[in-house]
């Protein structure tokens, strides 16, 4: 189903990225290319900088005052930290799903319609409804919620809430979807559903996922990057990383010797 990663177009390219929180350096000189329409997993022990790196990709770190970033991150050959790039527009192209499901305290419909509304993607109500329904369909939720679009999204189960958040991200037609441990608050069945969904979405979206579960990384991703103490230790095809890691630290981590 998937083509060989190395010959594919790279959607995002990080070049010598450093991130500082105040005095503390969180990420050291990371360079890494992310393939288009592929799932890339970022793994590593807590505090290794993988979430920080993920948040660099849609400039969510801009919100934090003390955070300073240097280096380049190219998306389709444009530096997303360039002066002419508006972070608000960037975030519409690079959607994000968070660790804890965070649907807005609004109806299911309004949650999905939020993005299209603020970006003016629909010119009338029927278009908006089409966007909402197709996003729910892509997120595999349509059968579960189609009869109760006006119910509170916060009343759904945790797994459904997380899929609402994914549908909400899809609704603005992003090119990249970033997922920050999207299953860490979910039970195994909900996790399986999300993983299945990610697999389907990877045909049309570039997905970068941070995960603490090595099984998850092995199951869903095509490429895996291993982070340790702010350094990128190893980046390779997932199969390679989990069967023949080149670095001893990677070996130790995936076999559970530390982390």
């Amino acid at each position: 189903m998937k083509k060989d990663g190395d010959t594919m177009k790279q959607k995002l390219i990080a070049e010598n990225v450093d991130v500082f929180y105040g005095e503390k350096q969180a990420i050291n000189n990371i360079s890494l290319g992310i393939n288009e329409n592929t799932i890339t997993a970022l793994i590593g022990p807590s505090g290794c900088g993988k979430s920080t790196f993920l948040r660099c990709l849609n400039r969510m770190n801009d919100v934090i005052d003390t955070c300073k970033i240097s280096g380049k991150i190219l998306m389709d050959n444009t530096d997303i930290y360039g002066t002419e790039v508006d972070p608000v527009e960037l975030r519409a192209k690079v959607g994000m799903v968070f660790q804890k499901p965070n649907p807005f305290p609004k109806s299911i419909f309004e949650n999905i319609a939020y993005g299209p509304r603020i970006h003016g993607l629909a010119s009338n109500n029927s278009e908006l409804k089409d966007i909402v329904l197709s996003s729910l369909e892509k997120a595999g939720l349509i059968d579960e919620v189609k009869d109760r679009l006006d119910d509170q999204a916060t009343g759904l189960s945790g797994g459904q809430q997380q899929r609402i958040c994914i549908a909400r991200a899809i609704a603005v037609s992003p090119e990249v979807i970033l997922m920050d441990e999207p299953c860490s608050a979910l039970d195994p069945i909900a996790t399986a559903k999300i993983e299945e969904l990610m697999n389907e979405l990877s045909q049309s979206y570039t997905i970068v996922i941070v995960t603490h579960s090595m099984q998850q990384a092995a199951r869903v991703s095509k490429k895996t990057a291993f982070f340790h103490l702010g350094d990128l230790i190893e980046y390779n095809d997932t199969d390679k990383i989990f069967t023949q890691p080149e670095n001893e630290k990677t070996q130790d981590y995936i076999t559970g010797r530390f982390g």
């Binding site: 849609n58 969510m60 608000v88 975030r91 192209k93 939020y114 970006h119 603005v172």
Partner: peptide, 24 residues
Amino acid sequence: SLRDGSMGLGATKAETIYRVILPA
């Protein structure tokens, strides 16, 4: 998390306040 969610969808701060935070 609601602020992050809204910002992550490309909402500006004003949109986030007006459409998410104040209603909540």
